Amino acid sequence: MGWFEFALAYVVFFLSHSLPVRPPLRPWLQARLGASGFTLAYSALSLAVLAWLIAAAGRAPHVTLWDWAPWQVHVPLTVMGPVCLILALSIGRPNPFSFGGAHNDQFDPARPGIIRLSRHPLLLALALWAAAHVVPNGDLAHVILFGTFAAFALLGSRLVDRRKRREMGPEWQRMRDRVADAPLLSAAPSGGTLLRVAAAIALYGTLLWAHPFLFGVSPLP
């Protein structure tokens, strides 16, 4: 199917991410699936379409933009460490500034954790993942794929800021100022934080092991 499948996968990817979260579809889905069921279904759909999109990029006609070199594999190998750490420290944590936060009413701006570094850690992780994978994938389809994701993550941060500022009113700026005054690192990391760091290490190792099975390419030199 070549470029047609790649373009179709792109359209489906963006529709599957935009339509379910817009009214009136989101309230209708949440009423039938529940809040947790909606989150699980939305996450599963997103991962499935993402897997299709990546596979479609691999099946698209190969148009070389730059030649591959051995040093390029070290870029994603290095960057994916921080990406895994950001994911482990942010998933399931309160974050009223962005999407996907859990128990946002329990957010403490004096101890914001990863939010002290970025209001949108999931989008930051997406941008780093995508930008790092552009380097060793110098064909047109993959440059479009990863380049679009990086741009989407950076633009998405601005759009989410705009929406949340509108929804939260003056509280958005007040909370942002309190987060900016918080320390970058806790003097004594909690047990939960250490578990999340361990989870990040496990995730990194799992990705190294599973990459050849999932994508047909070893990430190691």
Rank of each mutant, 00 (worst) to 15 (best):
E167D: 14
A125K: 12
V179G: 12
F149E: 05
I115Q: 03
W209F: 14
R174I: 04
H142G: 06
G169K: 07
S190W: 00
M175W: 07
W172S: 01
G191D: 07
G147S: 07
R158S: 03
S118G: 15
G138M: 12
F152T: 01
R174L: 09
Y204H: 15
V134Q: 10
I115C: 02
G191S: 02
Q173R: 12
S118P: 05
W209V: 15
R158I: 00
G156A: 05
R174P: 05
M175Q: 06
A150F: 07
H142Y: 15
L126Y: 00
F146N: 11
L159E: 06
R165D: 02
E171R: 12
L155G: 04
G191R: 13
G205E: 11
A125I: 06
L117F: 15
L214E: 04
H211C: 11
N137V: 08
D181F: 05
T193K: 07
A199W: 04
L155T: 06
F215A: 09
D161K: 00
F215C: 05
R162Y: 00
R196I: 04
N137C: 15
S157W: 00
D177W: 04
L140G: 03
L155E: 03
L140D: 01
R162L: 09
E167K: 13
R196S: 05
Y204R: 00
L195R: 15
G191Y: 11
G156S: 14
I201K: 07
R163P: 03
R166V: 09
V134I: 15
T193Y: 12
A127N: 04
P121M: 08
A132I: 08
L194T: 01
V134F: 08
R162F: 08
E167W: 02
L128C: 14
E167I: 07
R166F: 00
L159V: 04
A127S: 15
S186K: 13
T193F: 07
A141H: 03
L140Q: 11
A180N: 13
D161Q: 14
G138H: 10
G147L: 05
F149R: 02
Q173K: 07
V217E: 15
P121C: 06
A188K: 14
P183S: 06
I115W: 00
L159K: 08
L208G: 04
A150K: 06
A132V: 09
E167F: 00
P212L: 04
M175V: 14
A198Y: 09
P136D: 08
V135L: 13
E167Q: 14
L184A: 11
L208W: 02
D181P: 09
V134G: 02
P183F: 10
G138T: 03
L203C: 11
P136Y: 12
M168E: 10
I201A: 15
R196A: 13
L184R: 13
A125R: 02
V197T: 06
R158G: 14
L185C: 12
F215V: 13
V217H: 05
R166K: 10
A210I: 13
R158A: 08
P136G: 09
